[in-house]
Design a protein around this nucleic acid. Structure first.
Lengths: 376, 376
DNA sequence: CCCCAATCTGAGATCGATCTCACATTGGAG
DNA sequence: CTCCAATGTGAGATCGATCTCAGATTGGGG
């Protein structure tokens, strides 16, 4: 009832000074009561609490940040918040932040290094307590160094940096893809195409025939999934054929369709497609529909990422599901663990400070529907 | 090149004091140079700029906020950022914020009044320069009053508050729906069902047969669309039948399916369905598919909201498209206009301060595909 | 009765940027 | 030469919360 100051009362928000004045004590005493430290007589406690209630006092987080250096805000730097993956992850991050009493500032990079650099700068100047980032480049973590260099914890989401000191959260891309391909092989498929996305700047130097299995090092989902594809083929003794593997820029719908058309043109035509992300799955499904290629009669299809439409179309699409929400949660959990960890070595020259390079792998699930059938 | 301070140099971020010391001037002089006000000799300007470059100085936004009261941060309070509408709007907001040099804090309410209240409180204590909100309740804008009462500009997104003093951005829900229904009527349909969503707390007191056309007042998309539906029927001289109108809670998939099944059970069965939001469209399409009811042969379907799957399924769904991105942009534009407006009367008792109750209507587009055909 | 510890309280410093104000310098006009 | 305006500069206050420290008051044990 009386918690609100009443619209017409004073001009600005009440400060601790106002509370102290109303309670007839010093700012220090009021602060002790609210902060719960030091000594306070019962009388002072009561008077201060009453004043707080009457004035509807709420501490100013900006002043608190000023003094403590901790803002209670974390940053989330992603390519595009309107993307389903990032907005799903964002929700997970927000939920954890809420639990921790923190807030989240979002920055979009559109996968542009310059925007990423600006974003990290701005976040730093806001004195964020930590940053969750999906780095544009996994090989040049200069901006990330700038963050850890300032003693601010960082967790990398969905991509893993070459720098070992950075915690990261990724899906089990390689193993999940290997299982999916194995499933197709089990259905009798011998010519299985792989379709993935890349960033423009960073062409995938994929060494066909050589499976790189080292866990540590830079990694991007599409490449890891490609590795899983190669592993599965190799394990089954199937040949790896260059013409069945195609990558297209992430942001070019036409390029994706070309890539799909490309592998469909291979001779003999593959009998199954594995699409390594939702954009590719969509493009592949579109093209197959358009050309009247029957799924799974003439072509089997398994995609990575579950989207609502995969159950609305016929046949429903078999997919490897990764939970963006869970990944966001995991990243935030990791971040707050770092923030809470006492060994915040800060900015000494020896170590980058926070982060031990922990790698959290969020499990995926294979959901079998009707788009993958026996090979003809 | 030399812009970065070098990882190992000092301990903490350089402050203006450090810049001043390095330049051999006072903090005041350094501040004048950076702030571009007052007088500064060329010599001092050069020395300060050099020091800024050498130290990689970047002003502390927290301290600046402290002093100026302006944080350069705005808040976005929505039900759930992982929802496609809100994440799309978020992107629009972020783009405008970037242009304005501002950042965005996101808060989820899950359409719970308590969470909304907490969110606004936290944002206020962060001294945000403005808030874009999709209010849980359009009838009890107490929390919003708390924001405007603090002199902080507010824009309501997608929903319109009864309080006239709040700017709002909405789609032209009523007119767009009226046109869509008119389209169905033109195709010969006489029994057209309407399926919408509601919040649990706020049952839709829809007066069947009475078209409330007043523009000012509280409004929620689903209700406005229902009004458009009623208008169209009335205008065509068609009867409004209670059994062809159904609402279901926004967050209950089963309830939606029941609602769809309900109108399908009407005797005689309607020949067309208008689904007032993407959730309903999805549920309706699912149920029709499941029951093998041919679209548009046996049942025509038009939905509100475009989602990628509406072009992937067969038949492709005819829809009324609203651009969440554009709405987000519009809301942010409106908000920054308010922030920039000089007549910020603040917290005087006469007016609520900012906002003139402007209502921005973002146009929608009707995309005709194959799901709406001639009545049987 | 004295003294020391425990308890209680407030003045003032601090975080960093910004702005006011008072106090120098110039220079040119009279 | 004088005077005033224009120009240049720095000391210090300010925003609000928090914490240190010194001082004050109480109580109980010796």
């Amino acid at each position: 009832m009386a918690t609100e100051p009443g619209a017409g009362s004073g001009s600005r928000r009440p400060s601790l000074k106002d509370v102290a004045a109303r309670a007839g004590v010093s700012r220090a005493s009021a602060s002790r009561v609210l902060g719960g430290y030091g000594y306070s007589s019962q009388d002072v406690v009561d008077r201060v609490m009453a004043a707080v209630r009457e004035l509807g006092y709420e501490p100013d987080r900006v002043a608190r940040t000023m003094r403590s250096g901790k803002s209670g805000v974390i940053g989330f730097v992603c390519a595009d918040i309107s993307d389903a993956f990032f907005s799903g992850a964002m929700r997970g991050i927000c939920d954890v932040a809420l639990r921790e009493g923190a807030q989240v500032i979002v920055m979009n990079t559109d996968d542009k290094p310059g925007q990423e650099r600006d974003a990290t700068r701005v976040l730093l100047s806001h004195k964020v307590d930590g940053v969750i980032i999906t780095p544009v480049s996994v090989r040049e973590p200069a901006h990330i160094d700038a963050i850890t260099g300032a003693g601010v914890p960082v967790v990398s989401l969905d991509r893993q940096l070459s720098d070992i000191g950075i915690d990261s959260v990724v899906a089990d891309n390689e193993a999940a893809t290997e299982r999916a391909i194995h499933h197709l092989i089990g259905l009798g498929h011998r010519r299985i195409a792989f379709l993935g996305s890349v960033q423009r700047e960073e062409p995938p130097v994929l060494r066909v025939g050589k499976v790189r299995a080292n866990v540590v090092g830079p990694s991007r989902p599409s490449l890891d999934r490609a590795r899983g594809y190669l592993r599965a083929l190799t394990a089954a003794g199937l040949p790896v054929e260059r013409e069945l593997i195609a990558f297209a820029p992430h942001d070019a719908p036409d390029g994706r369709l070309e890539a799909v058309a490309g592998v469909l043109a291979a001779e003999p035509r593959p009998s199954a497609l594995f699409t390594a992300d939702s954009y590719m799955t969509r493009s592949a499904f579109s093209l197959l529909s358009e050309r009247g290629i029957a799924i799974p009669g003439e072509m089997s299809l398994i995609g990575f990422d579950d989207l609502e439409w995969t159950t609305l179309v016929r046949p429903r699409i078999s997919v490897v599901v990764q939970s963006a929400y869970d990944m966001g949660r995991a990243a935030a959990d990791q971040l707050f663990a770092q923030i809470a960890r006492p060994d915040a070595t800060g900015t000494d020259a020896t170590g980058t400070g926070a982060g031990r390079g922990d790698r959290t792998v969020v499990p995926t699930r294979f959901i079998e529907r009707e788009s993958a059938g026996a090979a003809p």
